[in-house]
Nucleic acid binder design. Structure first.
Length: 435
RNA sequence: GUGGUUGUAGCUCAACUUGGUUAGAGCGCCGGACUGUGGCUCCGGAGGUUGGGGGUUCAAGUCCCCUCAGCCACCCCA
């Protein structure tokens, strides 16, 4: 093997780039439909931007080094701290709620696996300044619409949604102490992955003993809005706590998207900064890890940027989506890259080919021609491989008569077209879209 | 970072039971048959330090050790 890209990094060949671009296009199109504006930020940030609130232990998962000015810097592993700084710096400039999205390339130093590299592009969409559940529903709907835009329906993509406030109330109602919540969340999060016995042991290690531990694990298995509300009825003041989840669910129903949504109390998300509704998108048959994760983080902007604004958003990486698209649709079709290929029959025809190619390019038509003299058969073969819809043959006869041969590469039929008419009337292109 | 597993051409895979001579095929790529007509067919060519290094042996793709890389699990999931 010769040299390759670093572990966890990708060389993006044209076919890879085309697929990535398609994903970007959907991200941008959905964002635009929801009224979100794109922003950006530096790929390199002060190391302390990430260590300040997350602690030193995450340094091991960062690409970080000292720059030539002696600053401790890191490649960004996430966008939220940058977003917090940007919003905080100009919070009063923007009418609330702020609807922003971005597509940063993010980096993390850890061992790669399928669907998880050391670098990826992650669509981040955040809605800042609105605490109500319609904001949560808006963001979740956008995530769903991205997957719909990529051709996935409710049979293949599922939203699993929960609410930190609900699970917290239920856990405390079950007898979990405030300081044990972290351990309880971790156990709830792993309910589908680990055995009950193993989780009971873990809970025991955190001081949560048998009767309570059993109740914690039972809560983690609650599915469906009705069951959640039923469980909340058993808790003091529980009815109000379910309102957010109920309204968000109802809003998604009104939008016609509820068939994508499962209320699932085992979803807690790893980060402890989430304060309300949390959600993840999954491939329905779970062949890959989560497609997307997000939720409400009403306290984070104050902690990070010193500005007190509620917020809700999500991150969606390109790697898992790419895996899904590749496994689903088999070989990605090669899109047409050319409108027309100009064939010079003899070397004397090259000047006319050059003149015509540039005249066509000037009006936005995608044109290629051979850069060296080749047999007509060879030139047509390349035209075919390039996905060109038409080929124009220019030889001594054509230059003499002023009429070129336009060959339809799909059907093989040919027609004579006056060379002067080629740039005037584009009928010969067969209705192909041109700018 | 820890543990497990895999590694042969650009890709997918071969290479007899138990080490044996010059590591093969399909697809793809390049060229030719076809000097003004692509797809089909036929023919030819390039492309390998068998991931790398060391060891055992008369002899290693094959056995042993180390290392690198992929995959899986843990960790973590921004």
């Amino acid at each position: 093997m010769q040299s390759k890209a670093l572990p966890g990094f990708r060389d993006l060949y044209p076919a890879d780039t085309a697929l990535l671009q398609k994903i970007f296009d959907v991200w941008r199109a959905v964002s635009a439909r929801y009224g979100f504006e794109e922003y950006g930020g530096p790929p390199l940030e002060p190391l302390e931007l990430y260590t300040a609130k997350s602690g030193e232990e995450i340094v091991g998962q960062l690409y970080h080094f000292e720059d030539k000015g002696g600053r401790a810097v890191a490649l960004r592993p996430e966008m939220t701290p940058t977003l917090a700084r940007m919003v905080a710096a100009k919070a009063s400039d923007f009418k609330k709620p702020i609807r922003w999205y971005t597509i940063p390339q993010l980096f993390r130093y850890e061992r790669q696996q399928r669907g998880r590299l050391r670098e990826h592009f992650q669509f981040n969409l955040d809605l800042i300044g609105e605490p109500g559940p319609l904001a949560d529903a808006e963001v979740i709907a956008a995530a769903i619409d991205v997957m719909r835009g990529l051709g996935f329906g409710p049979e293949s993509v599922r939203v699993r949604m929960s609410d930190r406030r609900v699970i917290r109330a239920l856990l405390m109602g079950a007898g979990v102490e405030e300081e044990q919540l972290g351990a309880a969340y971790a156990a709830v999060d792993k309910i589908e992955r680990d055995s009950r016995d193993a989780l009971t042991d873990r809970l025991k290690g955190a001081g949560i003993e048998r009767p309570i531990a059993d109740r914690v694990l039972d809560l983690a298995e609650i599915r469906g809005l009705e069951s959640v509300l039923g469980a909340l009825d058993e808790v003091t003041d529980g009815e109000l706590i379910g309102d957010g989840l109920t309204e968000c669910h109802g809003a998604l129903a009104n939008m016609g998207l509820v068939e994508f949504v499962d209320v699932d109390l085992s979803i807690v998300r790893g980060l402890d900064y989430y304060t309300g509704i949390v959600f993840e998108l999954f491939d329905a048959n779970r062949s890959v890890r989560a497609i997307c994760g997000g939720g409400r983080y009403d306290d984070l902007l104050r902690a990070l940027g010193g500005i007190d604004l509620p917020a809700v958003g999500f991150g969606m990486g390109d790697v898992v989506i790419t895996e899904l698209l590749r496994s689903r649709s088999g070989a990605p079709s090669t899109p047409s890259r050319l409108d027309v290929y100009l064939v010079a029959v003899t070397s004397s025809d090259v000047p006319e080919v050059l003149r015509l190619s540039h005249a066509l390019r000037d009006i936005g038509i995608r044109v290629e021609y051979a850069l060296k003299q080749q047999a007509v058969a060879k030139q047509l073969k390349i035209a075919s491989v390039r996905g060109s819809g038409r080929a124009i043959l220019i030889g001594p006869d054509e230059r003499e008569s002023g009429e070129v041969v336009v060959r339809n590469m799909d059907t093989g039929t040919e027609e004579q077209v006056p060379i002067t008419a080629l740039t005037e009337d584009l009928a010969w292109l067969g209705g192909r879209e041109t700018p």
